[in-house]
């Protein structure tokens, strides 16, 4: 999605120009575009009257925000304690191999998937779990992880 003046205006009109709204406004931008386009971040800072350096500090500090476009499907693998003791690490490595992600986290070349780690989705009873977009998948094994990706690939 390209950054349009209208789309940004719709977000910014909810916020009076005060620095306390910086995180909320950036969260709205992130939700809208799935990342923080530079021009949008600059516009938010200008509107709220905060220095761009503050916007940058916030955007890079919090995990909610990404500075690069994200894949179509968001694969968040839980590496919380309960998942860890039930073998989540091996499941995560399976996702990494299948998606050919070189770093710890990242986006596939075809922009189909973004893989990231989360610490506890609060579904410990079904550990290990992963959340793909809004849906939570529990009791994962390496094999199930492979199946899961295949179903999303064909969607």
């Amino acid at each position: 999605m390209s950054v349009t003046f209208k789309a940004l205006e719709n977000i910014l009109e909810h916020y009076p120009p005060s620095s306390e709204h910086l995180i909320s406004a950036l969260q709205d931008v992130q939700a809208k575009f799935k990342y923080l386009p530079p021009e949008a971040m600059t516009a938010v800072c200008d509107h709220l009257g905060v220095p761009l350096s503050r916007g940058w500090a916030v955007a890079t500090f919090y995990k909610t925000f990404s500075l690069e476009p994200q894949g179509e499907h968001d694969v968040a693998v839980c590496l919380g304690t309960a998942c860890h003791v039930r073998g989540a690490h091996n499941v995560y490595e399976k996702f990494r191999r299948e998606l050919e992600i070189t770093g710890q986290e990242g986006t596939t070349r075809d922009l189909k998937f973004s893989l990231r780690q989360v610490r506890c989705l609060g579904c410990c009873s079904m550990a290990p779990v992963a959340q793909v977009d809004e849906e939570i998948h529990g009791n994962l094994s390496q094999r199930k992880a492979g199946h899961l990706l295949r179903t999303y690939r064909t969607r």
């Binding site: 530079p38 220095p51 350096s53 940058w56 500090a57 890079t60 500090f61």
Partner: peptide, 18 residues
């Protein structure tokens, strides 16, 4: 207010925006 801390933890660094 040009300089700022970017990122956090071990990746924390002194930067300017972008």
């Amino acid at each position: 207010q040009v300089l700022t801390f970017g990122n956090r933890g071990l990746r924390k660094a002194i930067t300017s925006p972008f």
